[in-house]
Each structure stands twice: as structure tokens, then as C-alpha cells.
Computed example of a mutant assay.
Amino acid sequence: MPSKTSAGRVPLYRQVQDVLLQRLDSGMLQPGDRLPPETDLAAELRVNRLTVRQAIGELTRAGRLVARQGSGTFVAPPPQHFPIELAASYINGPDGLSGAFASVGRTLSEIPVSSEIVLGGSAPQAEEYLPGRRLRRDDSVLAVDGEPWFANSVWMDDRRFAGIGRHLQDGVPLYTVWRDVYDVRLKAAWRSFAAAAASPRVAEILEIPPGAPVLLREGLNLDEDGSPTVYIHRSCRSDRVRFVANYLQTD
């Protein structure tokens, strides 16, 4: 389990929470699965049982787990999806955010955090939508007037975007790199929105308390040929961000 952050030691229950989140996100624990007893988890992770209980309580409040009296704690079912149909268009910045902020006199900048090849099986959702590819994950933070508002992760084909790390620099959006360096223009296939609790890593990037509410936005982008190209996972600060869908009127 991780033990340090730039701000100091991560509380043990947050470390346990992060381990459980990894198991939930990787599919190791599926909806409906019963969690091992607290005593077993405490022995496995070499922590106190009360530490495990606190971590499970946090994940239960976040809606990832559900407690059933007399039966134990189970992985919560996935949320219900409610589709909204919108017209697709090519994306010239971080999902059109740059222009939206510029129109009100604010500046959006993208700051790289990390870039790495991901092991097979460690990113099941990205692998589902981008099958058969050697995936690279790029993490960045989107800051508004210098304040971090969005923690951004994208998965892409490392062979198609070979050497992309050389082109990543502060202030240059990934969409600009894809378009200008690799001649790839992207448009959205779908987006989903859900409430979530900030993981320790996201909390550190966004400079908010771990477990603070965030708006989780995921999606898939297509290239000009309609081929799935980029899978996106973005955590948005709920104290800074609100999305509004405007419906275009037609005859």
C-alpha cells in the first residue's frame, strides 16, 4: 500500500480505501460480490480491524459498497444509465472547455502529471473500448487561472501515438498534440457523468481532502474514420464545476 504523499503520510484507512478502490476499478471485485470479513482484510493488509472498518465505511458512503444487515458488505450494483442524444462535432481543446473559459475571461491550462504503459488487465474499461492495443495512460491536471479543477486520465494506443511523451509540456492540450503532431482529429462517441468520492491520488492532484465529492466524467473519442481512439476518465471538483446541457430547438 502507498505510504507517502507530498503532504506527508497518508492515513492508514485511506491506504486501505485505495487498495479496495483498485480492486473495484480493476474488476477483481464484481457487483454483488461479498467483501471478505474485516478480520481477513486486516490480516491481509496488516492493519487494525478498525482501520478496515473505517475504509469500508468511506466506500459505503461513496456508494461503491452496500452493507446488508446480518449478511455482510457487498459491491454495489452499477448505476443506471440515462442516455441523452447530442450532435457530435470535432474537439479542438479539452472537450471545448478552453473556448468556454476564454469567453468569460478565464484561462484553462493543461499540466502533464505522468505518462506510462499500462499492464494488461489493469484498466478493464479502457481495454473494453480499445481492445487489442498496447495502451498508454497519460495523466494531467486542468487548471483554471492556475487553480486545479480537473484531474484528467486518458488511455490511447501507444503504437499509434509513439513518442507522445516528447511532445507533452505545460500549457499544450493533448488535443492539440493529437491534431498537430499525429494528424488525428477526435470527436466524442459518448460521455457519462456520475457522483464519486475523490481517491487519495485525485485529492492530491486537485488539492482537496480525500473523499471529497467530485463529478466523475468518462467517455470515448473516435477518429475521423469512426474508430475508437481515446478513452477518457476525468474527475471534476464539485465545488467548482457544474455541467449544463442546452437543448437545440428544431422544427
Rank of each mutant, 00 (worst) to 15 (best):
M1N: 12
S3A: 13
R9H: 09
P11L: 03
Y13H: 15
Q15F: 07
L20H: 02
L21D: 06
M28N: 12
L29C: 13
Q30L: 05
Q30T: 03
P31I: 03
G32D: 01
L41Y: 08
A43M: 11
R46I: 09
R53A: 14
R53I: 10
R53S: 14
A55P: 04
A67F: 07
Q69H: 02
G70R: 00
V75F: 00
A76V: 06
P79I: 07
P83F: 06
I84S: 04
Y90L: 15
L97D: 04
S98E: 03
G99H: 11
G99A: 12
A100K: 06
F101Y: 14
V104K: 10
G105V: 11
L108F: 09
S109D: 11
V113P: 03
S115R: 06
S122R: 10
S122K: 09
A123G: 04
E127C: 01
L130A: 13
G132D: 14
R133Y: 12
L135E: 02
D139Q: 05
S153I: 00
D157G: 04
G165H: 01
Q169T: 11
D170F: 05
R179E: 15
Y182T: 08
R191D: 02
R191S: 08
A195P: 02
A195K: 03
A198C: 07
A198E: 03
P200N: 02
P200A: 09
I205K: 01
L206F: 01
L206I: 00
E207C: 01
A212N: 04
L215S: 15
G219R: 08
L220M: 08
D225R: 15
G226I: 10
S238P: 02
V241S: 07
R242N: 10
V244F: 06
A245R: 09
Y247C: 05
